[in-house]
Write a protein that binds this DNA or RNA. Structure first.
Lengths: 347, 347
DNA sequence: ATGAAAGCGCTAACAT
DNA sequence: ATGTTAGCGCTTTCAT
């Protein structure tokens, strides 16, 4: 037995069997370690012969390149950080799914956090930055201006999804056509003969809610209708239950309610039916925004302006993969369309 | 000017301003690089004086430790790989949220993929393994036995969530009380006076669906009721629409339908009402499984056996953090409870 | 308590 | 086309 000069550090207690490294593969294949690296790089200059020798050895050892080591040296982690700020909204599940699909093809990976309270988004992003993520996708979550600025300085692009950053700082964004869509909804309600619409907002501070309000109000004003009543439903069911009761108890009662998202609209429909005995459409028109799963179900059949997740995520992918797109057209607004359903039919 | 012997490799083309390293911090603080490392390790032996010198310098440079480099040397990535196999089901969004919440506290991170088709779960997991993830969480997705075996050999624990692995291989699992709950639902339907129940399954191959069927059938047999009719609704709305129409067209028509998840149950309620003019409860009892968002809404008010996401995720976290739990009790079944609502009230 | 030095697994010059 | 060499940024002995 040859004696072994290696340090004996490898404590056996926790030691998972060490994985094969490129060196091991190289030894088995009878080539240099660099050759192994090249064999796994499609556009490296290497002969077919060596490559297959390497790949065979690799297969035999069940070798898998260590991406952390690679990232360390290339300076590119191939990881995208994602923060989901509204973690119970199906819209973001769909978005995450689409994103995973798109980006995994580009060899990118998603490091995901959810942030129930917006306030700790900064913490989560700190953690993401330690992994040297290449981009940050903020889904309905907001970063502090200071951290955003740091990211910029470090060359990490920030992309807001669904929400817009409050300031015109250096962040990109992909949103639905909130202002436009809200106007379309207003026109539709007026067309249908509703004359006393109310508005259910999300939060005071949400850019999405604000835009979905402004576009609506502009059209209402244009038609010289009275200023709509307004309540805050916080984009979720508990909030919408309260807001709906509030609005439906007004005297005179609104003849229609436009809600800043579908979740609140569906809730409003239920409250109107169950608690106020109203027939949707005839007694009360209800419209939403998003066209999420559920809007088209028989029970709701909700008129709404759609937010096309797949197309929106395509845009996100472009911004992530294409630097020039990021600089030249960082704020993307993706148009949807009005889905007219029975919740706004007066007949 | 002193001349500089360093290589001039730093090409300026793509070079994002290089981030400060521990070396830079060390220089600024006037200590060794090792001291910087220690300053960021809570249980390292280092004087308060040096530590604060380091932390100040770090703050000034906006230094953030590079976790990829750390992982490389410690052999622990602190990354958990997650594959979501049923990416449109809200249940998994809730689970992901709970998981992020729990694990971020433990300093662990989630690398997430969604797999619309189960067949490519293996590919996605390959990618995850290259990042040296410490555990794999398979949410409603399945790994090939070969890959599972490899993971085992490499010391990477696999935890199935919501689904059970087909074989009794070395994988852990956390599931709801499928068999038990299904029995409870059966008893309840019988109690309510339903005598001709039908069953809407998910997939043939899903362990979840199988268990939710077996528990039900056992009780039905016990009460000497006829063998229930059965259709496959694929756990989603499109499938359930077809399956519901099928079951409701039978002659004699079932007096109740138990569905292997809530999504299918809600769909069944809608079809029964809208397409068959039935009154839910009186003409047709409907029960589901999961108690997801929506089940408790006025429009459905669905009787269902709950699957408590938060408690289930707590168990997942335990399995991830606690090696002994993993070995001693790898298969966790989390009991829910029967939520009795009006969809099974005959009155 | 601190610093020097080795090296985690890989890529990227540079030579040949 | 291939091997040699020098690190990427960090943790961890080992001395002191």
């Amino acid at each position: 037995m040859a004696d072994d000069p290696k340090p004996l550090s490898k404590s056996s207690a926790t030691a998972r069997r060490p994985l094969p490294s490129a060196h091991d593969v190289a030894r088995l294949a009878g080539v240099s370690q660099a050759a192994v690296s090249r064999a796994f790089d499609p556009k490296a200059s290497i002969s077919e012969a060596t490559r297959s020798k390497v790949l065979n050895a690799a297969r035999e050892l069940k070798y898998r390149p260590n991406l952390l080591a690679r990232s360390l040296i290339t300076g590119r982690s191939r990881i995208i950080g994602v923060v989901i700020g509204n973690p119970r909204n199906t819209f973001f599940l769909e978005a995450l799914d689409a994103l995973s699909e798109e980006l995994s093809q580009a060899g990118l990976h998603l490091l995901v956090f959810t942030a129930r309270v917006d306030s700790n988004a900064d913490q989560l992003v700190e953690a993401l930055l330690r992994f040297r993520v290449e981009s940050l996708l903020m889904m309905s979550a907001t970063l502090s201006p200071e951290l955003a600025e740091q990211c910029r300085a470090e060359g990490i692009s920030i992309i807001y999804f669904h929400r817009r950053s409050t300031m015109l700082d250096g962040c990109a964004s992909v949103t639905g056509a909130n202002f436009l869509g809200a106007g379309v909804v207003a026109e539709h309600l007026i067309d249908q003969g509703y004359r006393n619409p109310a508005f259910m907002a999300g939060f005071e501070t949400s850019s999405t809610s604000q835009e979905r309000e402004a576009g609506f109000m502009a059209k209402i004003a244009l038609h010289n209708l009275p200023q709509p009543a307004k309540a805050f439903g916080h984009f979720d069911r508990p909030g919408a239950l309260i807001a709906a009761r509030q609005l439906l108890s007004l005297n005179p009662r609104p003849d229609s309610i436009y809600c800043a998202n579908d979740m609140m609209a569906m809730t409003t429909i239920e409250v109107a039916r169950k608690e106020f005995g109203l027939t949707i459409g005839r007694d009360l028109g209800v419209a939403g925004f998003d066209d999420t799963e559920g809007a088209s179900w028989y029970s709701f059949d909700l008129t709404t302006y759609s937010q096309p997740v797949d197309r929106m995520i395509k845009k996100v992918t472009e911004l992530i993969l294409d630097e020039t797109a990021l600089f030249e057209k960082p704020h993307v607004v993706v148009e949807g369309e009005l889905k007219v359903r029975s919740s706004t039919k007066r007949t």
